[in-house]
Design a binder for these strands. Structure first.
Lengths: 140, 140
DNA sequence: ATAGGGCTTCCAGTAGATGGAGGGTCAAGA
DNA sequence: TCTTGACCCTCCATCTACTGGAAGCCCTAT
């Protein structure tokens, strides 16, 4: 099948499939006319990538996961480690955002939000004197 | 003062200050030797930007916030709207990550993580049959 | 023959910096 | 006076993970 059909079948946009091929995440055969040719396994791997990315794994993680998937002699330990590290990153991010949320909610609720110029949000940003709870600097 | 001192005083790396000047977020005077010259107000504005960015506001939001800060005739309504929208984005992101966390935690706990090759995480990625709770596709 | 849709490559742009090369400036010490 | 080292400057490349668009070939139907 051609890229359009593979895109529909895998859930990934054609552009993204080309990109994944470009960065060496997946190898795709070519027809005599230069068109990419996808078989069922290609589509399967693309869907695998789609799901891995959907879970927030980085491209490099996906590369490693796909390698582990291909390696029938793998240890599930290795997969679990990747997943656990990812989970830890998610937890860290949630904690960070939770702090941030508390701060922002405090600021928003402190501001009258009317036609007058007086605004505790701007005061806070200008002074560094936090009205609400403190928070960690975002590392995004 | 020069950029190094301004960096220390504002908490922003010198590189970032140059970048902010480059994208027109702040205007900095120059000495006869070409060096940037910072006064107390410049440092104050840089610290304002540092705190705004620290709260996760986008550069464009920061630009708007700085404009509102300068506009003594502003309505606090306008500031509150920016902040509320930002808060809503944070909430959405937290919800997204919470879903994701549930899914990942389910996968991680289902995997033995030993020397054997059998791995429910890979199975899940390969099949699309979610073992744990479903989740939204990340829009990062 | 032509129109359309699909396919190709390559280039640019997104957000928000960060790292480094290559080179000018300045103040202090030998 | 010369040199060393710490600054400072600009410009370009790099990072993540795509996405959009231009220019142009391919294939099928009418």
């Amino acid at each position: 099948m051609n890229i359009g059909e593979a895109a529909k079948a895998s859930g990934l946009p054609a552009k993204t499939i080309r990109y994944y091929e470009d960065i060496g995440l997946i190898r795709i055969g070519r027809d005599s006319n230069g068109y990419r040719v996808f078989d069922a396994d290609d589509v399967h791997r693309l869907a695998f990538l789609n799901r891995s990315r959907g879970l927030g794994f980085s491209i490099e993680d996906c590369r490693a996961l796909l390698d582990l998937y291909d390696d029938t002699g793998r240890a599930s330990e290795d997969v679990k480690r990747l997943a656990s590290e990812h989970l830890a990153r998610i937890d860290a991010r949630i904690a960070e955002l939770g702090e941030l949320r508390r701060t922002m909610a405090g600021l928003v609720s402190a501001c009258a939000g009317d036609a007058r110029p007086d605004c505790p949000i701007l005061k806070d940003l200008a002074s560094g004197q936090r009205l609400a709870a403190g928070h960690q600097r975002l590392r995004e």
